[in-house]
Design a protein around this nucleic acid. Structure first.
Lengths: 335, 335
DNA sequence: TTGTAGGCGTTATCAC
DNA sequence: GTGATAACGCCTACAA
């Protein structure tokens, strides 16, 4: 840090100072520089030499060349993250968490967005593989054999691959329990059209709570498609009095549909979402939803991946807890 | 592509096939392999040899080692993108656009999220520099000298650095013109607390349209802080009849504040946002806002950066057009 | 038309 | 304690 408090500018540093330059300046050999800076000289290098090397490196603004290091060590110190949709704030938070874990360990994150087109997913992993990442964080799909590198799967739990999931089972139970407590018996479900274990669990729990399969509709992760699906539900001869949605985005679609049909939330229809996206609080009425710590999901997964890259053992499966956040979109149902 | 239509699995490919392996199998020298696969053998390599090399590479599942290539060529074929906040859908879209451009050119994108803490920005660029990216896409701040690599600035226009901006001037003019047309004279402005050229322009236009400086308040990019700022405005002795917000997120805060004070939108207060985030349509009433193509912003910037990396000339400054989207949050003001 | 050789900047194994 | 030296895998003169 610069005396003035800002990051020390290294503008004057030659863009390509090598360890040889440092060695020359410190009056030692290049291998000594490597030894000192990698910390592997502990106890073998004299304090005076070490000091000289460090100062020379500092003065020259030396930065090790990652390509050379990667070539030599076979590790790029970067991990790949494949997200279904960067546009969804949840994944932004996941990325942020993963990034924090990775940075702490000196790793960088390469992000690939699949734009909800899962046929790209395998190709994307290929792209990252080509970029020589040391491991992958991947949503739902494992594609592990072809990765040829450690993988941690998020929101899915294929056998033999470590995974981190949010507790969708408990989340769904909380949501539906809440709805039933408030007297709702005709439950609807706007489900994700994307097939994934986490959504399968929600559908399963929905039925376990007495949800009628005929009141389940699937929608893509857009407001418009969710609205279309919700309209189907609202236009039934006996529409549901409460709707559980696999995501707040889908719940937003239900709001759109309700507005279109003049159905009042929560007086005529209760709505419960999942994920607690920021905008849920701004909806009118504010959306009741299931919250979890998306950054923790990313951070946990990244940490797990780093242990796998290090060849250390770790848990097969970690679970991020959920919480019910009751807001204004769920009301008591009478009669 | 596999006969069955899916991506050909390369599971059985040895994770580290080198060009030497390919050469051995094809019965040629390693340099011939390099020549063929880089396409620089055009016309110099016989068709038979070329065919043999390509088949051998295919059969072995050969993938060039990027670290070695980067070391040799001095270019990593990757660009760095520093975004203020991955959690904001706008930046997700920008990233998506940038990614698409980069991928088309065979580049990968390294993303760093600064979590709206701009003191990190320089450090982040450092991190990317360490990761040996060939160039940077950076929001607002240039930090160009220390980059030591080409930079394209988004949403800012420092001298001497190519930049891509959205047409904030026209956007603000459209928004305020619309408000004035509807009879509003007491205009409020919930401005971004983050200092940036794009926001300076909006403030300048606000005043040019007769906006009163005393009806300007600044807020961080969160619903809560925007709500706090909006309350300040609503609690004035003579509150504004219409509020222009530097972002839809801030507009969301105005909705919260209005709800808290029992102020009806648009009857008592008109609100206009900026950015056309997805959730703007779901608000009640749907938010009038300024829209632009965020993916185009990212794609344009990435393309410009790639030309800069290639050492080719390009425009100093490109502008992404904006559009007014009138929805239900702005109404006629009588009297 | 193809092969040989040198080196990109590191790390790591040895000698000294 | 420190310094030669040999890879890592690829690209590219230049030689054949």
């Amino acid at each position: 840090v610069h005396p003035h408090g800002c990051i020390r500018p290294i503008a004057d540093a030659d863009p390509r100072v090598t360890s040889i330059d440092v060695a020359r300046r410190a009056g030692v050999s290049q291998s000594t520089v490597s030894l000192v800076l990698s910390g592997k000289g502990r106890g073998r290098i004299s304090a005076r030499t070490e000091e000289a090397v460090r100062r020379a490196a500092e003065e020259l603004g030396y930065r090790p060349n990652v390509a050379a290091r990667a070539l030599r060590t076979g590790a790029a110190r970067s991990i790949g993250l494949v997200v279904p949709d960067v546009t969804n704030p949840v994944f932004g938070r996941v990325l942020r968490g993963a990034q924090a874990s990775a940075r702490d360990a000196g790793y960088t994150v390469m992000l690939v967005d699949v734009a909800n087109d899962f046929s790209w997913q395998v190709a994307s992993i290929e792209a990252l593989r080509a970029a020589a990442v040391d491991g992958f964080l991947s949503f739902r799909v494992a594609a592990p054999e072809q990765a040829g590198a450690p993988v941690v799967v998020l929101e899915g739990a294929p056998a033999g691959v470590p995974s981190v999931i949010v507790d969708a089972e408990r989340g769904t139970d909380l949501a539906l329990g809440h709805l039933r407590e408030r007297g709702h018996e005709r439950l609807g479900h706007v489900a994700s059209a994307i097939e994934a274990p986490t959504f399968a669990i929600r559908a399963e729990r929905f039925r376990a709570h007495g949800g009628d399969e005929r009141l389940e509709v699937a929608a893509a992760f857009t407001f418009d498609d969710a609205a279309r699906a919700a309209l189907e539900l609202l236009d039934r001869p006996k529409p549901p009095t409460a709707i559980f949605c696999d995501d707040d985005l889908l719940a937003g679609g239900v709001y759109l549909a309700a507005r279109e049909r003049g159905v009042r939330i929560p007086e005529d229809l209760s709505v419960c979402g999942f994920d607690d996206l920021d905008f849920a609080r701004v909806l009118s009425p504010p959306l009741t939803t299931i919250a979890f710590d998306a950054e923790a999901l990313g951070a946990t997964a990244a940490r797990r991946l780093l242990t796998a890259i290090a060849g250390e053992p770790g848990p097969d499966r970690e679970v991020v807890p959920v919480e019910l956040v009751v807001r204004g979109s769920t009301a008591q149902q009478y009669g």
